[in-house]
């Protein structure tokens, strides 16, 4: 088993942390995992992306040209990575930050208004967790429960007061994706 997940967006959207949470969950499940950022010269801002590889044997490449799973949090990364997705892959796109629908009919696209959902829960900074929750609905390698446990296990104690809102964000994203894929399953994607 091997699964590669690409996460991309603007710096500050929690792209790198979203990848790390997935990596922690995979590690706690006893999997092999790599997390690698595409690091730039900027201190802040700009674009950010990272790749997480989860496997049950020694991982070769930490990078992948055609990811089977992706979370894309803004329009530039949606435009850049949608064409590169592996056929049959799962793409979670942040509908709050893009002004177009999917161009690919051969992948599953989950559109989540992650900014709005995060604000409803009470903090824009939860955008990444809403998107991660949405991906988990289509990621058999990591369950929602395993991810919640990873957050609790690896978030420093002083941040534990933030756990309930993070759990809520994951849950909302997860449910949104289930609804969408449920509809898709009955009618064909789009």
């Amino acid at each position: 088993m091997q699964k590669e997940i690409l996460i991309a967006g603007f710096g500050g959207q929690g792209v790198l942390f979203a990848g790390q949470v997935l990596a922690y969950a995979a590690m706690d499940l006893g999997r092999e995992v790599t997390w690698i950022p595409s690091y730039g010269p900027e201190m802040r801002g700009g674009t950010a992306n990272c790749t997480v590889v989860i496997a049950d044997e020694e991982i070769g490449s930490p990078l992948v040209e055609n990811p089977p799973a992706a979370i894309l949090l803004n329009l530039p990364s949606y435009d850049k990575y949608e064409p590169l997705m592996q056929k049959g892959g799962v793409l979670v796109v942040n509908a709050s930050m893009v002004d177009r629908g999917p161009k690919r009919a051969d992948i599953i696209t989950i559109c989540v208004a992650a900014n709005e959902i995060a604000e409803e829960i009470g903090d824009r900074k939860l955008t990444n967790m809403v998107a991660v929750g949405a991906l988990l609905a289509c990621l058999p390698e990591i369950s929602l429960g395993a991810l919640k446990a990873a957050l609790k296990n690896h978030l420093p104690e002083r941040h534990h007061k933030l756990l309930p809102s993070n759990y809520a964000a994951l849950q909302r994203g997860y449910e949104t994706a289930l609804e969408q894929t449920g509809i898709a399953a009955g009618t064909g994607i789009r």
Binding site: V33, T34, W35, I36, Y39, I59
Partner: peptide, 10 residues
């Protein structure tokens, strides 16, 4: 190389 330096693994 930069990849080994920047990568996180268990």
């Amino acid at each position: 190389d930069g990849s080994v330096g920047q990568m996180m693994e268990p």
